[in-house]
Design a protein around this nucleic acid. Structure first.
Length: 856
RNA sequence: GCCGAGGUGGCGAAAUUGGUAGACGCGCAUGACUAAGGAUCAUGUGGAGAAAUCCUUGCAGGUUCGAUUCCUGUCCUCGGCACCA
């Protein structure tokens, strides 16, 4: 009797699959392309995490299933090797990031080869390899030339301990303080010159397309909230005694008559100008206090309103009332116009502000079911109502007459309809070392003459962001290689370590030939990952030559054939960042005529998170599960089975050792049963109709499970099938048909389990082959099922009395549709008789093939 | 505060979407095999009850012949966003 030895089986098949080139796909000649993508990992020094294994095997199971559906499945994997994360770890270990990254990638590759995925190792990416990032730089240049990349001074969060900028996502709240996620140092705020991408130009399209994507709702909703569209109006307020007009955005122009004060963000460009002498001290003091706080603090602090009076007034254009202008930090400069028309009666924040500073409050809406009450604030101000105290607007209805109101503003030339988004431009500059250098050159002498790339090209694009002096690196000079410097530590100057290396930044102007400087910032790691899926099929290897791969970021014919991605799997934590950026980049490339599709991932599935003992795995908790251990002890197939059995793929789960042993037991049991039947030690005794019934039912359930990422029910159905077979053993052959069916049952199970336990399935599949020519289980056609075969000759009908199960009867298949027959038979049942005795049946419910219900 | 997901045995969970609640597994209990433990196999396993039977999908209602599934209210738990005018 053979026993299951995973060490031998798994390494054997991994080797054979590689030799037989089973996992690669011929990109050029494949006829049914299916691009199965999973989010590539960051190659950490700790090695592959069991969470990675969960993510990757779940996606691979889908890929393997689709391959058995007849598709040519391309399933690549690569490495997100850039960014601060990698760099900081290298610094901590005292190893150069390049060395560290190469080492980690090697380790990851070795581990990834053990988990049994159908990765195509001919096509992989390492985003910090110049072969890759030259195209990241190329991409930057295309966006720059299209007017979608610009440089501007902007506020950033700065960690004085890490000596670097950190993103908002890399900070956390600790008590009243905002600290660096990594070192827990309180962060500061700095103004620095940064490169941005104009993702805001795409806000509306990014929003519209969310209604076309086959993605989980929660991810789409998160993206919609992030884009944050608001429709309303902008209104023009004239400053008293000044020429300036201040624009303000409001979603409630109907409350314009109720505006009793005006508030500017402390950073508003007009503040300095309009502050009256008497108030200069208090205003500048307030501004400097605000500057000390980070933007995050301003947002987190949901406490008392603060602000100061500027001494100036604006005129409310609707009624010419004179209104005081304040500044307050609850007004954010980067939303709307950085100004708020204060309507304290109908906005909670304005109300708090007015209360605190004793400003006038004037109700202008009476709700259908509420009324403004200065002593008892209610949150009904967004409900329906009608306008009051507003001269000719009185009796108009909110929200029904909003459009009319905006029209009347337009007629009077004091405002117009306006849409605003929360989405902000994407800051891609990093003043660090470990990233692709931003491929731009600044020429001071061209700048003096007001020249720029746009003027040199006589471009029609208006240079609204003052990009004088800037030129992209000529494309034939790419990549701008990252110098291999040794002093890559950030020094806290706010400049990249590359700024200390003249041999890197000193260059000549591509237009005038004069002395010029390279940009020393590197780009955000999210730029690397925003297009990696485009690169995979166009990398050299397999049937793609080196020459082809080096000519384009993505080869047009190959891209046309393989993209967009057929199915993308990944964690929901990338809902906004990676998934939004990739959509934006794809849309921009579409507009630049490089791609014929707008959306990179029409189908996205968000898997769950693996936790351990109820908590997120982390080094500090000491509860990190190392997959190597489990693969060594149980094998990849058992681990894959266990991870699949925990629950639906979207839910993740809690990793427990006891559970994994259950899967080991299952494989051993199946292995044993397989050889018992195969060697003719046992036969199946149930009749063929019944055996076929459960076989077809199992195929149906399993297929449903694969299609819906419910891998847990696949395994449950197969186990159930196995239990049934075991219960029907006999040691004597009954008929030839019966003994044949045993083998059919085995073949079916092997096929059904192949995507989840690929090595085991291959091992057993070979028992059916003559051994002359290699014939893989993974190249087989998926088994079909026939609905008609599922119901047996005898069907069990449940009998209910008043909706409660009181018995069941067996009915032959042909009679299940015959209502009279089934009802009559149900009434003959002894148990049912006792329930129906001396009762009047009020109603008889008949559900064909399922149940009858007597209402008494 | 707002948005989202979810509450089913001791635990992970099923129920193909209004039709037998708890499939499948873990754990546990008893027994067999063992010198013994492990492994394996067999049986049992939502609760109450001697039993017939009754109760049971967070809680309270509603619709229905019939509700884990639909509706209303309510209470928890976990994620995400957070002064967005």
């Amino acid at each position: 009797m053979k026993t299951y030895k995973h060490q031998q089986i798994e390494s054997k098949w991994q080797k054979i699959w590689e030799e037989e080139k089973l996992n690669g796909v011929k990109l050029k000649t494949a006829t049914k392309p299916y691009y199965n993508l999973m989010m590539y990992p960051y190659p950490s020094a700790e090695g592959l995490h069991v969470g990675n294994v969960y993510a990757f095997t779940g996606s691979d199971i889908h890929g393997r299933f689709m391959r058995m559906q007849g598709y040519d499945v391309f399933e690549p994997i690569g490495f997100d090797s850039g960014g601060i994360h990698s760099e900081n770890f290298a610094i901590k270990m005292g190893v150069h990031p390049k060395q560290m990254t190469n080492r980690n990638i090697e380790h990851f590759t070795q581990q990834l080869k053990m988990i049994g995925n159908i990765f195509d190792w001919n096509h992989t990416v390492d985003v910090m390899n110049p072969d890759y990032y030259r195209w990241t730089q190329w991409l930057f240049i295309q966006l720059f030339k299209a007017g979608l990349a610009y440089k501007k001074k902007s506020a950033v969060t700065w960690c004085p301990s890490c000596k670097t900028t950190v993103s908002d996502e890399q900070t956390e709240k600790k008590g009243e303080k905002i600290v660096c996620e990594r070192c827990k140092t309180e962060i500061e705020r700095k103004y620095m010159s940064q490169w941005f991408f104009k993702i805001t130009d795409y806000a509306q399209r990014l929003l519209d397309n969310t209604y076309k994507l086959n993605w989980p709702d929660k991810v789409l909703i998160t993206q919609r909230n992030w884009i944050g569209k608001s429709e309303g109006a902008e209104v023009y307020f004239k400053l008293e005694n000044y020429q300036d007009i201040i624009k303000v955005f409001t979603t409630r122009p109907d409350t314009l008559h109720g505006c009793t004060f005006f508030c500017l963000a402390p950073e508003h460009p007009l503040v300095i100008n309009i502050t009256q002498e008497k108030y200069k001290d208090s205003v500048s003091h307030y501004i400097s206090e605000t500057n000390k706080k980070t933007e995050l603090e301003r947002k987190f602090e949901n406490k008392e309103k603060t602000g100061v009076f500027t001494g100036s007034y604006v005129i409310n254009p609707i009624n010419n009332e004179k209104i005081p202008v304040w500044i307050a930090d609850y007004v954010l400069m980067d939303y709307g116009e950085g100004a708020v028309m204060g309507v304290p009666a109908h906005d909670k924040r304005d109300f708090e502000f007015a209360k605190k500073f004793n400003l006038a409050i004037k109700p202008v809406i009476r709700g259908n079911n509420w009324e403004f009450n200065p002593d008892n604030w209610n949150d009904n101000y967004k409900d329906e109502g009608k306008i009051i105290n507003s001269t000719d607007w009185n009796d108009l209805q909110y929200p029904y007459n909003l459009k009319d109101i905006i029209k009347s503003l337009e007629t009077k030339k004091i405002g117009k309809s306006k849409t605003t988004y929360k989405l902000r431009d994407w800051c891609i500059s990093r003043q660090r070392y470990w990233g692709p250098p931003i491929p731009m050159i600044y020429c001071p002498s061209c700048a003096k003459e007001g020249k720029s790339w746009f003027t040199s090209q006589k471009s029609k694009l208006k240079n609204s962001t003052n990009m004088v002096g800037w030129y992209p690196v000529p494309e034939d000079q790419l990549p701008v290689e990252l110098s291999e410097i040794n002093d890559y530590l950030p020094d806290g100057s706010g400049k990249s370590p590359l700024a200390r290396h003249p041999e890197f930044f000193e260059t000549t102007c591509p237009v005038c030939g004069g002395k010029a400087q390279r940009e020393t910032d590197v780009s955000d790691t999210f730029l690397d990952s925003s297009w990696y899926f485009l690169r995979y099929p166009s990398t050299a290897g397999g049937d793609i030559s080196r020459k082809e791969a080096s000519k384009n970021a993505f080869i047009p014919e190959i891209t046309k054939k393989w993209l967009p991605v057929s199915q993308y799997c990944g964690g929901a934590e990338h809902s906004v960042l990676h998934l939004m950026y990739s959509r934006f980049i794809t849309m921009a490339l579409h507009d630049l005529k490089y791609l014929d599709f707008e959306e990179p991932f029409p189908n996205f599935y968000a898997h769950g998170l693996i936790i351990k003992d109820g908590a997120k795995m982390s080094k500090s908790r000491g509860n990190v599960v190392n997959p190597d251990e489990y693969i060594a002890k149980f094998g990849a197939d058992v681990l894959r089975l266990y991870l699949s059995f925990m629950g639906p793929y979207k839910d993740g789960g809690d990793f427990r050792d006891s559970g994994i042993q259950g899967m080991e037991k299952f494989i051993h049991r199946f292995f044993k049963l397989f050889y018992q039947i195969r060697e003719g030690e046992v036969y199946l005794k149930a009749d063929i109709s019944k055996l076929e019934g459960i076989r077809h039912e199992t195929i149906k359930k399993v297929t449903y499970g694969y299609k819906n990422f419910k891998y847990n029910i696949i395994i449950a159905s197969i186990m159930k099938y196995l239990n049934f077979l075991e219960d029907n053993f006999t040691d004597k052959p009954l008929t030839e048909e019966n003994s044949k069916h045993g083998l059919l049952a085995l073949k079916t199970i092997v096929l059904l389990i192949a995507p989840i336990a690929p090595h085991l399935a291959e091992e057993l599949w070979q028992e059916f082959q003559d051994g002359k020519q290699f014939n893989s289980v993974h190249q087989q056609k998926w088994p079909d099922y026939d609905e008609k075969m599922i119901t047996n000759e005898e069907v069990i009908i449940v009998i209910q009395v008043n909706g409660k199960k009181r018995g069941e009867i067996k009915v032959v298949k042909d009679k299940t549709l015959d209502q009279n027959y089934v009802l009559a038979k149900a009434k003959e049942d002894e148990k049912i008789k006792s329930y129906l005795k001396n009762q009047v049946i009020k109603k008889e419910i008949f559900v064909k093939g399922k149940l009858v219900n007597f209402v008494i």
